[in-house]
Amino acid sequence: MAYKFDFGAIVPHWELLVDGMILTAELTVIGAVVGVGLGIMGAWARASRAPVISQIVGVYVELIRNTPFLVQLFFIFFGLPALGVKLTEFQAAVLAMIVNLGAYSTEIIRAGILAIPQGQIEAAQSLAMNRVQIFRYVVLLPALKKIWPALSSQIVIVMLGSSVCSQIAAEELTFGANYIQAINFRAFEVYFVVTGLYLVMSILLRMGLKVLGNYLFERRRHV
């Protein structure tokens, strides 16, 4: 093969990759925090005894989970302006990630809530805890603890999925990769490097979530 690798050709463009990693990290953190928050509310709504709200949330979850993220992103970015809502590419990307992760985490957290034995809730009621207290201490925390690994995996998936945000000109990591290879045609070198960067980011994210999980769930146990 006549092809000669030249990883040095990427060096002049390193800022694009660093900026891309920062934006990917920002999208992931905001998307994860707000998305999981949305998921908690969604799961509560699903578990609540108000059938209309529960059904609306159900439709939202199914619509999002069964269509591709890219299509959701396009509708938010190119479709909403027609309704008079104009978002920057960053806002659109963040919104799409929140909406997407919100649907998945609703489902994951709901599964955790269903696994809480009814007796625990009855016990809490007999201790005269109010509904908010019961949801927070007896239902939500143990449920989150149970599904934390699944939720962590989903957050990593969403981070990797954020790579399609480059299609609406959000300058995240894949954007940097595709831009560099368009300038200098060094697709291999760039993709090898970017794959490595994604791997590092997802390992760090997973570790971070593990630490967060320990902080949230383990400490309380001994209180």
Partner: peptide, 16 residues
């Protein structure tokens, strides 16, 4: 910078 021609054109037509 959009991914392909369609992205560029859609961005212009939608006023982005």
């Amino acid at each position: 910078r959009y991914e392909d021609n369609n992205g560029t054109i859609s961005a212009f037509l939608s006023g982005q």
